[in-house]
């Protein structure tokens, strides 16, 4: 693995390897010294063109637990807001000998651009790009689901995938990088996915995706769901006529108290409720649902650090320079 840009092109082997490594990383959090020397002397740059404190501190904690040096580069309030280009920023980071660049960007494809442009030699980790992908979020979601699924099936999670797991993802799929990354990764891991959204918040072309699509949350739940993932919905979408009102949205597509209660009456006693955060309580999820024992919201945050440690470790610990030389040799011959 040279970069982590998307889950669309992440094979089952690499995906399971990241999840397995994350299992080992999660044990570090329980130890006396919550730190490993594996990335000593490596420099990880968190390059954020878009604010996201949660994602940044998660990556920062992950890199620091692996003993990497961390540089936070917020594109706001820096040379970037004065119009410095991605190219110039990349070349600056290259001059600083960054080994990995964790990039968050409002523009879809910016991480891929950074990785493939030749501007920089570092490993690139996509920490969320526009409405494209957020691969580490999907991996931490899969990690959370795998632990749950293994516990239910009384299997070891290491080495396992998600075959047979039924996942529903509800909300603003159109603008959601989390939904996209989850759809590809969950397919790769063998889960079956149903997207639930108002038709206005599903992309044209969704019919080609490896999942079911439904406009009706209740009927999806009635068919049986093992993991119910709610996506953040921005209330301002209402102003662009994606839906008439927050109230109508919450009633039709929100995970409210009535739907929480319906899980019991449907016999879905083990169904978990997931949310990537930050939550809009009362819009896509009710407080009772968010705070219920079914909610994995905090476990997702915890698992995020383990998964990001795994990704950074797997990208940075090997002899990447040599791999790169091999690649150049192949391509130039």
């Amino acid at each position: 693995m040279r970069h982590l840009l998307s889950t669309e092109d992440l094979g089952r082997g690499d995906a399971v390897r990241i999840l397995d490594t994350a299992e080992e990383m999660s044990a570090v959090g329980d130890r006396e010294v919550k730190k490993l020397p594996a990335l000593r002397g490596r420099t990880v740059v968190n390059l954020f063109f878009e604010d996201s404190t949660r994602t940044r501190i998660s990556f920062e904690a992950a890199a620091k637990r692996l003993s990497a040096d961390v540089i936070n580069f917020a594109a706001k309030g820096s040379s970037v807001s004065k119009g410095e280009s991605l190219k110039d920023t990349a070349q600056t980071l290259e001059a600083m000998s960054a080994d990995a660049v964790v990039i968050r960007h409002w523009a879809s494809g910016a991480p891929q651009r950074l990785a493939n442009s030749g501007w920089i030699d570092a490993a690139v980790v996509n920490a969320g790009d526009g409405t494209h992908e957020h691969p580490t979020q999907a991996l931490l979601d899969a990690f959370t689901m795998r632990r749950h699924w293994s516990r239910l099936n009384r299997n070891a999670s290491t080495g396992a995938d998600l075959t047979g797991l039924r996942v529903a993802i509800a909300g603003d799929v159109l603008h959601s990088r989390v939904a996209r990354s989850n759809v590809w990764l969950l397919r790769t891991l063998g889960a079956s996915v149903t997207l639930v959204a108002p038709p206005t918040l599903l992309p044209v072309g969704v019919e080609h995706w490896p999942c079911e699509v439904s406009y009706d949350l209740d009927s999806t739940l009635a068919k049986g769901v093992d993991a119910m993932m709610m996506l953040r919905v921005q209330a301002e979408r209402m102003n662009a006529s994606f839906f008439p009102s927050a109230r109508e949205y919450a009633r039709r597509w929100g995970f409210d108290d009535r739907r929480l209660a319906s899980l019991d009456s449907l016999g879905l006693k083990d169904t978990i409720i997931m949310h990537p955060g930050p939550m809009n309580r009362g819009l896509e999820i009710s407080s009772a649902a968010a705070d219920s024992p079914r909610s994995t919201v905090l476990a997702q945050v915890r698992n995020g650090v383990s998964v990001r440690m795994a990704a950074l470790y797997l990208l940075l610990s090997g002899d990447t320079r040599e791999e790169r030389n091999e690649l150049t040799k192949v391509s130039s011959s």
């Binding site: 879809s108 494209h132 072309g205 969704v206 995706w209």
Partner: peptide
């Protein structure tokens, strides 16, 4: 099909 995947 492609814009749906690329998020553009």
């Amino acid at each position: 099909k492609v814009s749906a995947v690329l998020g553009l």
